[in-house]
Amino acid sequence: MKDLKAKIAELKKKFNSVSARVKDEKSLQEVRNTYLSRKRGELNLLFEEMNALKPEKKSQAGQMINSLKSYIQERLEKLKKEIAVKERPVRKIDLTLPGEKGYCGAPHPVVLFQQEIEEIFLSMGFSIEEGPEVETDYYNFEALNFPPHHPARDDWDTLYITDDLLLRTHTSPVQIRAMEKRKPPIRIIVPGRVYRRETSDPTHLPMFYQVEGLVVDEGITFANLKGTLERFIKTLFYEKIKIRFRPSFFPFTEPSAEVDIECIVCGGEDEKCRICGGSGWKEILGSGMVDPQVLKNVNIDPEKYSGFAFGLGVDRTAMFAYQIPDMRYFYENDLRFIRQFALK
């Protein structure tokens, strides 16, 4: 009996080490045959041995062998599952075949760029305002301090509809409309289409997009204008970009400033740079402190309130940012051009 007990223990030990080496169906079958075969299986041999025992010992031995048997069966069943998982038949595939391409439409670059601009100002607490494209002479010019017959109007070549109606030459008239409508503080940007009487060429178009901005409140200063526009430009381009404010003239601002940024293409290194003409600077924004007369025109007291305004051409700036050589590309709507901006 003692002998049998030791044998059972040894057999279990042996089974454990053999079964640990089972890798596939074939070796599993071998192990199964070795231990569970009805004829010469190790367990059967044990049962035969058991039969030789005295009846009082028999039942105890039987229990021990049965327990080993079910241990082996369970273990083999588990192994079978493991092997089945491992050996599940998988068809071999050519992994080098191209992946399935999805297709997504692309945004128009001007809309895309305009939204980038808008988002920066929205994050600075500006809101978006819109106005009509067919404007009156009053809003487009007079209220903005362009007297009739003033040569300053020559810089804004105008498409007229009637004596009094025109296609707005800038989004600035919306400044006036906004100031008529609400009281300061005002902090708005105005995106939209504007028109000039120009023949299309690589750098001019009869229609393009502009974003105008206006801030009016108590104590607004030129320093605030600089702070706001520098923040904007750095966010739109990059943090270390060089920015220059330069005196200029707009009838509706005083003092006025034009804002130049360093040429992102040549950095001023290329004397024949197509983008900056070798100056190293690229004009990007017009701006200034809202002219006191403009504030008076909308019944805002210039002694109490001050403000700044600015404007930039979306197309022109997008052209610079994406290094597009010809502005007309934007309105040819060649899908090979537009689809590139799906990547932006």
């Binding site: 607490g125 503080p185 005002i186 801030v215 607004i220 220059r244 400033a257």
Partner: peptide, 19 residues
């Protein structure tokens, strides 16, 4: 103009505008 500091205007509450 380069000697003027760059500061951010005070962010006073505006009329809400929901577009």
């Amino acid at each position: 103009y380069d000697k003027i500091p760059a500061t951010f205007p005070p962010l006073r509450e505006l009329e809400p505008s929901l577009d």
